[in-house]
Design a protein around this nucleic acid. Sequence first.
DNA 1: CGGTTTTGACCAGCGC
DNA 2: GCGCTGGTCAAAACCG
Length: 342
Amino acid sequence: MAEDLRDLYYHQPFHESSPNNFYSNSNITSNTYASVMATENSSLLHSSHMLDPSFMSLGEFLLQGSSDHHHHPDAIARAFGLSSSVDIQQPAAPKSSFPLVVKDHDQGATCGGEIPVTPNSSISSSSTEAANGDHEDTNNKGKKDKQQLMDTHEDDHESPKKDQNKSKKKGEKKEKQPRFAFMTKSEVDHLEDGYRWRKYGQKAVKNSPYPRSYYRCTTQKCPVKKRVERSFQDPSIVITTYEGTHNHHVPATLRGNVAAGLMLHPPMSSILNPTGPPPPTSLLPQQLLAQMPPHLYGHGGGSGAGSMYQQNQNQFQQQLQFQDYGLLQDMVPGSMFMKPEP
DNA sequence: CGGTTTTGACCAGCGC
DNA sequence: GCGCTGGTCAAAACCG
């Protein structure tokens, strides 16, 4: 069953469209969607609902009523490695479409981002690897092992690369890091999440004009990495994959900004409670912001620069002048898909 | 000048 | 064994 689920999840087709200048960090689109696509080692995966082919959108998930204990909000926090609970309300979101996209903030009409799915369709390209979990599960399994080993070596400081590789034991298995991916409708690839990231690689993606970028948390000894790539079938969609759990708090220098950003960002509030008052601050832990795809709470910038965040914040404020954030009314099924343990 | 990004090279795993 | 691919390294370039 898990395999079926993964198959469904991993074979999300995307609309084909022409590339755009997704490298531009200067623009924030009017559309920002966020969706969680997959996670490993997540307690959420035990929910029988996740086995429903219709799946559940992030919005649905987040907003699942407390009556459904399978989807207690705490599970979300747990999924993100958090501890705080969230008061979540039931959305009136359709369940028909798939994959699901949570509309973050948007100018209303252009709530595209809804990605129709053909059950038998498949994504052959690794450009969708983040969404294509069997890729990650198979191809990356060994690579992740290597990766972790290399990471640990990094901490040791810094023997030549070849020595690092030589010193690796083949049999050693890397501990599986919790991982989750998000689909985001955004022109900005790398979005501010409160943590500082350093780009350490970029690779061309097979069958895609868009490269995949590799980032590592700059905090010492923090193992968290993330990959950012753009869907080649819908270039407006960014797929962000987080791997690992931060072993530290959000960098202090960014906290204020992030927190401030939160206050200014209706999207998150709307997601949690579309019609009601802003949620209590306790509902928006920094960790949640940091661990969640940045897009869920608005736009962020590149690799953790405060200036970038400031820039985005300004842009967001500009958006505020024109937008009505009626998030959940327009919410379409999103893509919070929890990838079950194999 | 320190931190970040870019980018070509390198390596391991996998399929054939 | 070979080629392909994804992931990472690390020197150079870039930037504030």
